[in-house]
């Protein structure tokens, strides 16, 4: 190159030697991030059905490609609650969690099925079980309302004794 172009190249890179590293440093080091909600507003998450605390033992249930983790808590002799989450992202739209006192034999939602709540992503959801569940574990039915089909169902582990034994069908 002729000298003026060499000078031009040199001056450009003297400038870029500062500009590019500065751009990278500021752009990466001070990258803005959306902070998580602050402590007081976690109450909102609780009101929205997210589980504030998790039980010690969680049972893993696999229903095809969708895995679930469930935990049971007996609050008192008459009240108990269910903690449930999908291990992987939800494969069906609007998945509702129902409880039925008996085992499900066919792939349809019984009319007397009791709605416990809805699943949201992979978050743990807190749902209150009916009093009857303290004596008879019953079954959980995961129902996709938008697809109007039972996604999966499984018997609940007993609140008394071992939590083993849950299985999807």
């Amino acid at each position: 190159m002729i000298r003026t172009r060499r000078l031009m190249h040199r001056q450009m890179f003297l400038l870029l030697a500062f500009l590019i590293p500065a751009l990278l440093f500021v752009g990466l080091a001070f990258r803005p991030d959306v902070p998580p909600v602050s402590k007081p507003d976690i109450t909102l998450l609780t009101k929205a059905g997210f589980a504030p605390t998790l039980p010690g033992n969680l049972t893993r249930i696999q229903a095809g490609e969708q895995g679930f983790e469930i935990g049971l808590e007996a609050k008192s002799p008459m009240t108990s609650s269910l903690i449930i989450r999908s291990v992987n992202p939800l494969l069906k739209p609007d998945l509702l969690v129902y409880w039925v006192p008996e085992s499900i034999q066919n792939h349809s939602l019984p009319e007397h099925a009791l709605l416990l709540g809805e699943l949201m992503g992979t978050s743990f959801r807190h749902m209150t079980l009916p009093t009857a569940a303290t004596t008879e574990p019953g079954s959980l039915v995961i129902y996709s309302l938008a697809h109007q089909e039972v996604f999966t169902h499984f018997t609940l582990p007993s609140l008394v004794g071992s939590e083993k034994g849950a299985h999807a069908s």
Binding site: Y98, E111, H112, A113, L114, L115, L145
Partner: peptide, 15 residues
Amino acid sequence: VVRPGETGKHAFSRY
């Protein structure tokens, strides 16, 4: 949309 079964407080899904 009406949720089937015994639904209690939140008886609907809204799309």
